[in-house]
Design a protein around this nucleic acid. Structure first.
Lengths: 191, 191
DNA sequence: GGTTTCCATTAACATTTGATAAAAAGCAAT
DNA sequence: ATTGCTTTTTATCAAATGTTAATGGAAACC
């Protein structure tokens, strides 16, 4: 299991075995069942996560009571942006498992201590932050310049098999449409 | 003019006079006329900017040849995210002045050298990066969960007088709608 | 001053998307 | 297999948005 975390980190910013040992000692493993909400709004989350297997989403609840999918997080990625705990709107986000989920977590305060004393870990965290920003800008570009049908086509490229694994309403709200409209587009794209 | 830059920096992350002097020596002042594109796609931009006055946008050109507004940047803000020069999609962005524009620029390589040797400046740059990410997530939340009319209402709150200053087609594409639709919504909101 | 270009609004029509309800298809547990 | 539950699809109608084109006005240019 530890090796899975090492692979995730090295896929983002390679670090030495010594640096990884510092992280390894602090790792805690967690599992959640499909449908479980494991971070709730306004409950300060003081952990960073590595996704070992499964898919989850960040979401918020609109005035009508619907869950709006903001981001999707897949296997072998880092879940929460490091260092960002100050924004009110972001702290309102919930996180829910969309499939059975295996996570490795690390206490945020402990991790920040590591960042201060270890340049490699700091660079890793900074790279995560940059990647987050890049992916946001890319999604921003997609939402602003593509039609719903084009966004679905783009989604299929970026998230391959996810359409067969997670509930369609979650995909639909990620794309900014209803699940009925998603169903129509799916039919449309089958010719 | 230097003081303007100092105020912008201190509004984001306060630094000492000594640290500011390091930046001050490297500042170059630039002006652009309304409508000028001052960063063009694929021409690597090796500067960071402080916006002293005016408004500008980042945009890309879709296959139909239309300009799609991605972000708006207003007076007293920092324009380009530090350290992010690697993403292909982001390097495809253009930047255009939407009003007459006064900028202070600093060579990116020089600035990075300052970041390495000066902790305050590094923290400032990191805060800019975090703020960028926060604002992207907030925009993402808005685009996914609000109707076009609600997005316009939100836009008016966040950008106050901008609607009277910059061309409506730029606002419309920022909101993800056509300028004709924007015109209808404007009429609608006047009751 | 006059011309030209760009911008904002409006109208008419086509297309897309949303809302609601109902039917069909999967899936899990017995 | 059958029963329930959830998810996905389909149908119908209403609302929102896009497209094209025409109009009027403001700003920029010569």
């Amino acid at each position: 299991m530890d090796d899975r975390v090492k692979n995730i980190i090295n896929g983002i910013f390679p670090i030495t075995e010594n640096s990884f040992q510092l992280i390894k000692e602090l790792l805690v493993f967690e599992t959640y069942k499909k449908g479980e909400t494991f971070i709730q709004r306004n409950k300060r989350n003081e952990k960073e996560y590595f996704i070992l297997s499964g898919v989850c989403k960040s979401y918020l609840i609109n005035p009508e009571g619907d869950e709006i999918t903001i981001s999707l997080f897949t296997e072998n990625s880092v879940l929460s942006p490091f260092q960002i705990r100050t924004s009110k709107s972001i702290s309102n986000l919930n996180f829910k498992a969309l499939t059975d989920l295996k996570l490795a977590s690390i206490d945020a305060k402990n991790f920040e201590s590591l960042m201060i004393e270890n340049l490699e870990i700091r660079n890793f965290a900074n790279t995560v932050l940059q990647n987050e920003l890049i992916s946001k800008v890319e999604k921003e570009i997609g939402l602003a310049s593509l039609s719903a049908k084009e966004r679905l086509i783009d989604f299929r490229k970026r998230y391959k098999m996810l359409e067969n694994i997670i509930p369609h309403p979650d995909i639909a709200s990620y794309l900014g449409i209803t699940n009925i409209s998603l169903s129509r587009l799916r039919k449309d794209l089958m010719e």
